[in-house]
Design a protein around this nucleic acid. Structure first.
Lengths: 147, 147
DNA sequence: TAGCAATAGTTGTTATAGCAACTATTTTGC
DNA sequence: GCAAAATAGTTGCTATAACAACTATTGCTA
């Protein structure tokens, strides 16, 4: 790849796009009184799909640090959207699942998220989506895990 | 765009890629004793390019909140990399610029950043870069600023 | 089987992100 | 010219991010 590209701010563009997306989502959540943050939503969505999971799995599924998951879950438990349940056989493990209120919250927020995703992809094609996916996946796999 | 795509986790993929990039950069900075964070670097890089600027301009240029810029600058001033200078005519304004140590830091970190950017783009072409830019710009402009 | 390593999760600390509220100036509009 | 609006920046607060250190439990191995 030509040297000029190395100076191009792809990091910056990724960051700027994600920040604008995140702000848009949060403002929409707030204006609709959804009473939830973007990252709390991402965990709720994941818990809805997996029904019953652990902090560790949730962290892997959402690309979040386990400490971050632990603290967000703490907030969701306080809000009554998630409940913790100890594993009978392995007392280190704690299973997480949505409460009925949590499931209700998911169903309430979901259509809004659906609309926002459509808004973001307006005027883009399925080929564009595939391209973005391919390029981001390539960058992701290019990055060493250990330094 | 087909409905299935609305359910695809582009937000998640952007977030995961950026997080891995950011972690990689930070670990490389740490292992080379650069004594700087990724976001501190982004401000230093911007100050090197613009020589003399204000908090507000810096915030616009870096897609950061002005409060965030204010606090990162505070850290950079404490490290002796940036100095503040009041405007003579408009006493609300504060100009920011790199100190000699700040310029030195820029020159020290720059080659590493150059290498890391090359690593991220490994096996991608200039056309890929153009595609990514186009798609991210489209998403960016699709997002309403007001909700 | 005793001791050590690995696993699951929490807590402490520092940094970034962003909203609201605030001070201090400067500009605008009547 | 003066009050209100706009601008520049800081401070308070809450949330997310990640590393290090910690507790508790389970698995492994000599």
């Amino acid at each position: 790849m030509a040297d000029t590209f190395v100076n191009n701010p792809s990091f910056f563009k990724l960051d700027a796009t994600l920040k604008k997306l995140r702000n848009y989502w949060q403002k929409m959540f707030d204006s609709r009184q959804m009473d939830i943050t973007v990252d709390q939503w991402l965990l709720v969505e994941n818990l809805y799909k997996h029904k019953k999971t652990t902090h560790n799995e949730l962290a892997r599924n959402t690309s979040k640090d386990i400490t971050t998951v632990s603290r967000i879950i703490e907030l969701l438990v306080k809000k009554g959207l998630v409940k913790r349940e100890a594993d009978t056989y392995d007392r280190r493990k704690v299973y997480l699942q949505l409460t009925p209120d949590g499931t209700e919250k998911y169903k309430q927020v979901k259509p809004l998220v659906h609309e926002m995703r459509k808004t973001g992809w307006k005027s883009l094609t399925e080929a564009d989506y595939a391209e973005l996916t391919r390029i981001l996946d390539t960058i992701y796999s290019n990055i060493p895990t250990k330094v």
